[in-house]
Structures are given as C-alpha cells and as structure tokens.
C-alpha cells in the first residue's frame, strides 16, 4: 500500500511539477544531499524511517554512522536540513502547511502519523546533545558517573 502511495507521489512530481507547475513546491534543504539521491528517497523514505524507528525504539541502536559518532537514526535528524522558516524566521511545525513533509503529503493526500508524537521542528539543545555519544569525561556520562560512585563507595 505504501509503495503505491509512494509511486503516486512520484508520478505527481514528474507529471504535475514538470508539466504546468501545479505540483508541490518542495522547500529547499540545507546540508549535503542524500547519497542515495532524491528519487530513491521519494520512493523509500517510509521504509527507511520505519526501519530506523524499530532499531532505535526496540533495540536502542541510535548511532548508525559510527564514523562521526553522530546519532542519525532519528526522525528528528530530518529537520536538521529539512526545516522551513516562516516570515518571522522561526521554524514552522507540521501544523503549518509550509512544513517540509506537508509539501508533498498534502499534494498526494497521504496522511502522516509521525507528528502526533514526534517533534516536527529542529531539536532544542538538550535533544541535540543526545545526538553524540557522551565523552567519558563529560560529567553526566555513564563512565564518569560510575567511577564517581565507585570512589564514593570506597571511602
């Protein structure tokens, strides 16, 4: 079913946008493009999100790109690049029809269930901090805590 919707969306892009400009206007993103390419993402984004969601939630795997220690298996990560600002310069949430996800989903009339629970704008600081593994010398890291506690007990 999802695939069908995805294809419909793609057809929507190709047909609508190219022909007469009535297609969705996809807000420009910042940052590096996805290595898989946009076409791939347009078709498969739900599979990827769904896969990462189970990895993160159920197995606690959050650092999918260990090379730079960035925790990427997060829907919140999308909005690091795909955030849209309003006239006042603040990020619009999913309630606003200019939101990145809504640009296409409104067009294709496909409901999104993500944002009843998930934040739909870039994270605040405490959330951002959890994107990287704690360094052992950070006060709130498990390592630092455990050695503090061990010292305390030995006293």
């Amino acid at each position: 079913m999802r695939l069908v919707f995805a294809f419909l969306a793609v057809i929507g892009f190709a047909g609508g946008a190219a022909a007469d400009g009535t297609g969705p206007v996809v807000p420009a993103a910042v940052g590096d493009p996805h290595p898989e390419g946009n076409d791939y993402w347009r078709v498969h984004h739900m599979d990827m999100l769904r896969h990462d969601r189970d990895l993160t939630m159920r197995e606690g795997v959050r650092d999918l790109a260990p090379d730079d220690l960035a925790i990427q298996a997060s829907i919140g990560e999308c909005f690091t690049c795909h955030a849209v600002k309003d006239e006042a310069g603040s990020f619009v949430s999913f309630d606003d029809e200019r939101h990145f996800c809504r640009a296409c989903h409104d067009y294709a009339a496909v409901t999104i269930d993500c944002f009843t629970c998930h934040r739909s704008t870039p994270p605040n600081e405490s959330g951002l901090a959890l994107r990287t593994m704690a360094k052992p010398d950070e006060a709130n890291s498990i390592d630092a805590y455990l050695s503090r506690v061990a010292q305390e007990m030995n006293k």
Partner: peptide
C-alpha cells in the same frame, strides 16, 4: 516523542543511556 491517545511511562531515559549518559 509523546502524543494523544497513547500510553507513556518512565523509560529510564533510554535515549540518554543509548548515548552513554545517566
């Protein structure tokens, strides 16, 4: 993440634990 119509509870700050924090 939390939203209308679902149940929630303490998760021992699983996202923090997963990133090595207490």
């Amino acid at each position: 993440p939390r939203g209308k119509g679902t149940v929630e509870s303490c998760n021992l700050c699983a996202p923090r634990i997963d990133s090595g924090r207490i």
